[in-house]
Design a protein around this nucleic acid. Structure first.
Lengths: 332, 332
DNA sequence: CTGTTAGCGCGTTCAG
DNA sequence: CTGAACGCGCTAACAG
């Protein structure tokens, strides 16, 4: 049962004290070049690798960043994770991903295991079912910095990164109305989450402002899957008054909606215009064509990461920035 | 600077030796119920959490699984990661994701940092530029179990999970030819990777078998992006003989191809039929319509995870299973 | 320049 | 049933 080689193994073999070996490997100035060379050569030859667990235990290093998202496989989140992973890697961090599956319970468990694992910092998008945030507040006690992105909650004071949800949805509503719509439905997430709450407020505010009476907010508080989108469309389009436009807060939901409308022989965009949130390049070739709100995912992810780094470097700076990036409406 | 609470802190407060505290928290039988209760209550009240780094250092626990993929944001991989993360979580593991960006160098570095971090096991899909596998072989020395999935390499003896690439591509070729195609181009990855090599062999074998002369394998050994797909199409469709069908090994490449053909006013599927690999639900609503080869991602991910668990539980069992799952051709 | 010592948090001896 | 001692791998402080 070969064990992994340690600093002590090297020290025994070379008859040098293990602290000297440690110094040599850390490139400490006060080690004779010759012994340093011997040590480094031996280490390389025998595949010595530091044991991070030991460093973590000593408190001298925390090299893992946690990213918490509701669903890794959603295009928006997987892109964000991809960007964060590359940035983190450059800074010497590893990324662990955690998936809450939109469940409050799982989110709490996830935070638990993060605390157990000596993690350097967290970038999180909260689950749809999160209302109570005490589990996030608990992180303070363990001095684990937290940055929220996209799916924010209000009652917690940490750096936050989001897009201009209010403005972009207002713009979307105006755009639809100017193009003849007057029965717009908004398919969205739980109003516990500020992203969705802001969008809902924008929606209501804008249709009122434009003098429209019809208002229909269809709230979904589970994972945004294609199936959920289908059943949303089914229920919306069997009401007495059916809409002539849809604003959909998720790409996946939109796919479901489009498929359902196809089945019901409702034509897009003739009978119903659709605008959805989403950067999926497939949108370019999707028919019927759907306008979309493109989010600057890379910028969001970069900003989140940079804010986290700042928090890690200056743990006592309690000035929490809130950064807002602009999404763009692409008309198709 | 509040530190995190440890077993010793509890022991001091309660005037009990820390070893007893440890036993109580691990629910060791020989601790008086009363003291156990005192300890557990105190621990819960003050938010005690085990320090995993300490456990790892002692060698009593490794609770992190690494997943290595070329690009996290590709639908196939993000789905696999999502499935693996959920399974791992149930078994008490955390998942760290690593992205090689299709680079051999980064893959080597990734393995380095995995070794440093005392990781329990690895599920990997190799990068496009990987030919030499010595960095993977090095894992043996550190007793870190490895399972390869989807993107395999031959010269290494570990459990492997893949789909029936040869059969499904043969089937795709036959399907195209039976539907009138006789100039099929295959847009694929590097032949260093067995997935792509198998598909290329299947392609060549099948067109030969069907008595077709035209043969065109377009190999790409970088990340499968939309842009790469576009430029592939551009170069393919400016040759003297242009194809009437395409088999495309990636969804993203296919999107690029379709966009480029649109620009060139080449009609799909009238002028060119396309079959691509991919499970993206967008395929249902993409126009022009594209047939696709659907991979059983969930099964692949589950199998990989289970094989890894087996390797972790029986590290000395050198019987390496190779599991093959069936993809399905969906005609559109 | 190098060796000694101590301790990070924990669980497992081995004694009582 | 509980306490004392040890060591996992590493580095920092101290002593030569």
């Amino acid at each position: 049962m070969a064990k992994r080689i340690t600093i002590k193994d090297i020290s025994k073999q070379l008859n040098i004290h293990h602290s000297t070996v440690s110094r040599a490997l850390r490139n400490h100035p006060k080690v004779k070049e010759e012994t340093k060379k011997r040590i480094v050569d031996y280490a390389k030859k025998h595949g010595y690798k530091v044991n991070m667990s030991a460093l973590q235990l000593r408190g001298s290093a925390r090299n893992v960043i946690a990213v918490i998202v509701p669903n890794i496989s959603h295009h928006f989140f997987s892109n964000a994770i991809s960007v964060i992973t590359n940035l983190a890697y450059k800074e010497g961090y590893i990324v662990s991903v955690f998936q809450t599956n939109e469940s409050f319970e799982q989110e709490k468990q996830v935070l638990d295991s993060i605390i157990q694992n000596n993690i350097a910092g967290i970038i999180a998008s909260v689950s749809m079912q999160t209302s109570d945030v005490s589990h996030f507040k608990e992180l303070e006690r363990y001095k684990i910095p937290l940055v929220l992105f996209d799916r924010l909650v209000d009652d917690i004071d940490v750096p936050k990164v989001e897009i201009n949800n209010f403005e972009i949805v207002s713009q979307a509503v105006r755009h639809l109305i100017e193009n003849g719509a007057n029965r717009i439905v908004h398919i969205t997430g739980s109003d516990r989450i500020s992203v969705f709450r802001n969008r809902q407020q924008a929606y209501r505010h804008a249709i009122k402002e434009m003098g429209i009476e019809y208002s229909n907010t269809y709230m979904i508080d589970e994972d945004f899957t294609l199936e959920v989108g289908k059943s949303a469309a089914k229920s919306i389009f069997t009401e007495k008054t059916i809409p002539d436009a849809i604003i959909c807060d998720s790409y996946m939901l939109m796919l479901g909606v489009v498929l359902q409308l196809k089945e019901m022989d409702i034509s897009v965009p003739n009978d119903v215009k659709i605008i959805c949130f989403g950067n999926n390049p497939s949108l370019e070739v999707i028919t019927p064509s759907v306008s979309s709100i493109v989010q600057p995912i890379t910028e969001l992810a970069e900003a989140s990461f940079n804010l986290l780094m700042k928090r890690i470097e200056e743990p006592d700076n309690k000035q929490f920035e809130q950064q807002i990036f602009s999404a763009k409406l692409i008309n198709r």
